[in-house]
Nucleic acid binder design. Sequence first.
DNA 1: CTGTTAGCGCGTTCAG
DNA 2: CTGAACGCGCTAACAG
Lengths: 353, 353
Amino acid sequence: MKKSKQATIVDVASEAGVSIATVSNVINRRKVPMSPETVRKVEEAIARLGYRRNVMATNLSRRRSNELGLVLPHFGGYYGRFAEKLERKFHRYGYHLSVFSAADMDPEVEMRHIEHLLQRRVDGLVSHGLAISMHSTQQLVGEGTPLVIFNGWGWPSDITKLAVNLDFAKASSEAVRYFLAHGCRAVFYAGRRKGMGANDQRIEGFLAGLDGETRADVHALLDAGDLGVAGVLEEALRLSGDIRPIGIYTFNDSLALELIAECHERGIRVPDEVQLIGMDNEHFAKASYPSITSFEMPVDLQASLVTGFLMRQMGEELDEMSAELLDSYLNQMQGHELLIDMEMVVRNSTQNG
Amino acid sequence: MKKSKQATIVDVASEAGVSIATVSNVINRRKVPMSPETVRKVEEAIARLGYRRNVMATNLSRRRSNELGLVLPHFGGYYGRFAEKLERKFHRYGYHLSVFSAADMDPEVEMRHIEHLLQRRVDGLVSHGLAISMHSTQQLVGEGTPLVIFNGWGWPSDITKLAVNLDFAKASSEAVRYFLAHGCRAVFYAGRRKGMGANDQRIEGFLAGLDGETRADVHALLDAGDLGVAGVLEEALRLSGDIRPIGIYTFNDSLALELIAECHERGIRVPDEVQLIGMDNEHFAKASYPSITSFEMPVDLQASLVTGFLMRQMGEELDEMSAELLDSYLNQMQGHELLIDMEMVVRNSTQNG
DNA sequence: CTGTTAGCGCGTTCAG
DNA sequence: CTGAACGCGCTAACAG
């Protein structure tokens, strides 16, 4: 009650008429034997004073924070869902997760967040592999803090022990083959430079998918950042001459939706003339007109693997299921990059059946 | 270098051959005069050792954290954007913002986050006015921590000094009147119970909008949670008999999009037979087919007002523009709830012109 | 200009 | 079971 500030453990101790050690024992539910009477007195004092433990003091003293940090490109869609999953999973192990957005890949903001997390002495870090350079990350994180990357490619193993990646390349190949198998002799990839590594993976997969038995007469890589959405469509149509239908595989559902809008505008029929496949399986992909064929993001699985690996690296005991799951993936891993398959969800923006 | 742990201020001091006070002065760029030579030595030592300040120790000692917390219903759409804006604005005042999602209104998760923020001794809190009960909040936050609510109605002034709300009621009235002025003699509100306060506001505005010069022959409140999306459409059509067009004002764009999909499914023409107005002006509202008439969320303005008020409450000096803006809103405030107008964006899901 | 020292709130021995 | 004492890393007077 002194100074009308927050009560401390000392206040509680004197209020309950015990020592601070006892209060600490009660708070942390230690195994040391205490009389129920004592426990009750302490708990009452805590309630009466509205005592709330100061985690800064706790962590300082314990020399560990039980806090983890997650850095996202932004909060929207898949990333937000991933964050929520991850938070819940870490919580089961007694860790608290703080989530930060790099505000759509602003390197300065991203840097600030990572620096702050490190200053807060988080026990571990999870980050997308995007905005800031690997060098900066190296500098920042150094040897100290365990770092797991998700959706990042080509990270040296001295900075991260593991990257948990969605297999965009494979999905992209699948998309191309789907187009080829469904009458498209002209196929395009509509990308986003800004997607960086994730964009490169899609390109790689796209090109690989072209090498099947059925071949495309026309194909090209287009970028929505350079050409704009309308520009992408125009260029695709121009390159295709009178080949129909054409297939456009897009960086994400959002871009696919915009292309559909562009088609409506010009009276181009989807999927008769233009077929589209997106990525992310966003909510609107199902409800758009026509609905968008896309790839479902295995958010939960990805979060489980990230959690499992980081927890194990930090010396936590995994439950049997988690351990088994993690190991099965680690076994078939190449380098220190682990790949997760994605499933295509066929809808009406492609010819189906 | 001892124990291969993180270097401390003591390590830096001895490495540089100065006292820890000097190091502290350098780190915090205090106004005390120091020889450039000393500063250089300290900075070199810092770089050499890879020293990074421990904010827990700093905050403990300073008895303030310079940290703020934000609790969101979830990370998606408007909320995520709001969070990013807020983070940037607070940063200008030297505060760091940690954002948490209640995982789509899970009260337990929400509670956990608030409790954790309080244990971290954040200097202030911003929260949506939704999942947890006011009573719990009362308990949790008590007198100690400044709290600003956004989009929350009916909060007692002893727990929050200010609620910064989007004027959903006004927008809803406007939506209804738009329908009436554009030939709809049957109008409906398609809500979401889960929206709670925000849903109530829409209902209130919807009903108020019915009381203009032009009247509706049929109107009703429908809930997508109870009836499902298809159910809402069916019920609206049933109640309307052969009145056409009908107008459906929806809780948000997402629901509007689903209703459009439902219309496509049944061959119902939008906007000829059914007109729709959504809310949030999400990215897909513009690109959907037909595009969705919606209300733009003044995220930046709302974030500015929240920032301004909280900063002032915490004794920070606002710049002139911010102060002026804040005051102009505070002056026309009723109670301690401040209302922000939203602008309707007319698109093709309504008859326009 | 620089060094000393007493806290900040809590965890952790270790003798009682 | 309990209480005293030290340490965590840093800030903030206060001396020098």
